Amino acid sequence: MIIILFVLVLWYGGLFFQSFFLHRYAAHQVFTMSKSMERLTFVLTWIFQGASYLSAYGYGIMHRMHHAYTDTEQDPHSPSHDANVFAMMWKTKNVYQDINQQRIVVDQRFTKNVPQWKSFDSFASSRLSRLLWIGLYILFFAFFATAWWQWLLLPVTLFMAPIHGVIINWFGHIYGYVNFKMKNTSKNLFPFDFLMMGEGYHNNHHKYASRANFGVKWHEIDMTYLIIKVLDALGFIQLKPIPVRK
């Protein structure tokens, strides 16, 4: 039971900070926060993503490129141009690393105001940091696993962020339903997104990329947005005005 709870905490904790910080803040800037709050969120993202930590800078730029080039050959991740999910994720990894290590020239429209904390990212993304998290996860499993099958969940904890990416960027362009006909393959995975905390409303998000709330219909409850509303009410962040829907 403890192992299951541990994996669920990492799943939803890592997913929240990926959605809240990397996606809605770094890439789309649907709200603002103080520099101190931003630094705190960097650290919390590292804690909850652990071994699969993603840089806000690399993620933010790559996601903006995804929106600009959706389902074209320039898209960093698209089922339309990658033979299988492993090929897509390998390409995604290469693009992400090229951005972070400045091996490619990136258009300024993709870099504007993307948060970056170079010294922290250098440590959090390092091999040392990832190995430390891996070691801690293995120790946790060694102490609390009560059945052999629970060890099958260890790889999930190690590759949590890429798994989240696969669900949205691969399956979210293949399976699901569509609220808006668009010139791309984006789909909503679930009528109620219990698994991805609102990220599964991918078709809605491609239609209204600058909206903090990814849900559109009454049953499309966006759990990340509800938390954002609470944080806004408490003054930790400041939501930007909601764009007028057309």
Rank of each mutant, 00 (worst) to 15 (best):
A142H: 14
S122G: 02
L128S: 13
F110C: 09
A142E: 13
K118D: 07
F141V: 04
T111S: 08
A145M: 11
W133I: 08
N113A: 06
Q108I: 01
F110V: 09
G135W: 14
W117R: 12
L128Y: 10
R127D: 15
R130F: 01
V114A: 05
L132S: 14
I138S: 12
L136P: 06
I134H: 10
I138Y: 10
F110R: 10
A142D: 14
Y137R: 03
T146N: 10
R127M: 14
N113P: 01
S125Y: 03
S122T: 11
I134P: 00
I134Y: 08
Q116A: 03
W117P: 00
F143G: 00
L131H: 10
T111I: 09
F110L: 08
F110N: 07
F123Y: 12
K112F: 09
F144S: 11
R109I: 11
P115M: 04
L132Q: 04
S119Y: 05
A142I: 06
F141Y: 14
W148M: 04
K112N: 03
T111H: 00
F144P: 07
I138T: 12
Q108N: 12
R127S: 15
L131R: 10
I138C: 12
G135S: 15
D121C: 03
A147C: 02
A145D: 08
Y137F: 15
A147V: 02
P115H: 03
S129E: 02
F120A: 15
D121G: 04
S129Y: 11
Q116I: 06
D121R: 02
F140I: 08
Q150Y: 03
K118H: 07
F141E: 01
F144Q: 14
L128G: 02
W117T: 08
Q108W: 01
D121H: 02
W149T: 02
W117C: 04
L132P: 01
T111Q: 06
T111E: 06
V114L: 06
W149Y: 14
W149L: 02
F143C: 08
A124R: 10
R109T: 11
A142Y: 15
Q108P: 00
Y137N: 14
Q150P: 09
I138N: 03
N113I: 01
W133G: 05
S129I: 05
F140P: 05
D121L: 02
S125R: 14
S129M: 12
F140N: 08
F123E: 01
Q108D: 14
F140G: 05
W149A: 00
F141A: 06
A147I: 00
W148Q: 09
P115F: 04
F123R: 04
F140H: 06
A124W: 04
L139M: 12
W149K: 04
S126D: 08
F120S: 13
F141M: 06
L139Y: 09
F110T: 10
W149P: 01
A147Q: 13
D121W: 01
F144E: 08
F120E: 05
N113M: 02
F120C: 04
L132V: 13
